[in-house]
């Protein structure tokens, strides 16, 4: 844990140096433009230095257990599914993608009853359409739908 915090402190200090010498001069105009961002860099550098100077015994992170590894893999898959869901919204439209996306999320989260996987997204997205689309006249990307 201590080693992790020291590494974080070192990372923060390197980030501060990059900001001060590289990013801020290139991304701001003139001395006045750089003033406030540089004050923030100083504000960031103080805890960075304190973290780096912290002493203590280095302890490694505990290896992941089987259940944790399973949950981590599934969460990564879920994240990939969300990414795909967002990518298909412009093509399929929000409501169609959301029905398919929700069904995929439910499956990934361990729901195996076909009726639940089909009906839950249909009802939920239907209610969203009633509340947002019709109730608040809120327009989402239509995609395939007219």
């Amino acid at each position: 844990m201590i080693r992790g915090k020291r590494l974080l402190g070192l990372g923060v200090l390197v980030f501060c140096l990059l900001l001060w010498f590289l990013i801020i001069p290139n991304q701001t105009e003139g001395k006045t433009g750089a003033e406030f961002p540089r004050l923030i860099v100083l504000f960031l550098a103080i805890p960075g230095a304190v973290l780096l100077l912290r002493s203590g015994a280095a302890t490694g992170a505990a290896p992941l257990k089987g259940e944790e590894l399973y949950a981590l893999r599934r969460t990564a898959l879920l994240l990939a599914l969300v990414c795909v869901y967002m990518l298909v919204i412009p093509k399929l439209g929000f409501y169609t993608s959301s029905i398919l996306g929700m069904a995929a999320f439910l499956y990934c989260l361990g729901v195996r009853t076909p009726l639940q996987i089909i009906l839950t997204p249909l009802i939920s997205v239907g209610l969203m359409y009633l509340g947002l689309g019709l109730g608040l006249s809120f327009r989402m990307p239509a995609g395939l739908l007219p």
């Binding site: 869901y85 919204i89 412009p90 959301s98 996306g101 439910l106 939920s124 327009r139």
Partner: peptide
Amino acid sequence: PETLLISMVFVFCVIGAYAANSSLFDV
């Protein structure tokens, strides 16, 4: 069911991000 809540939150996140500027960049 927690599974339903999590799935719905994902969809609501997309709606919320899109809502203010109608921009997929925001999503």
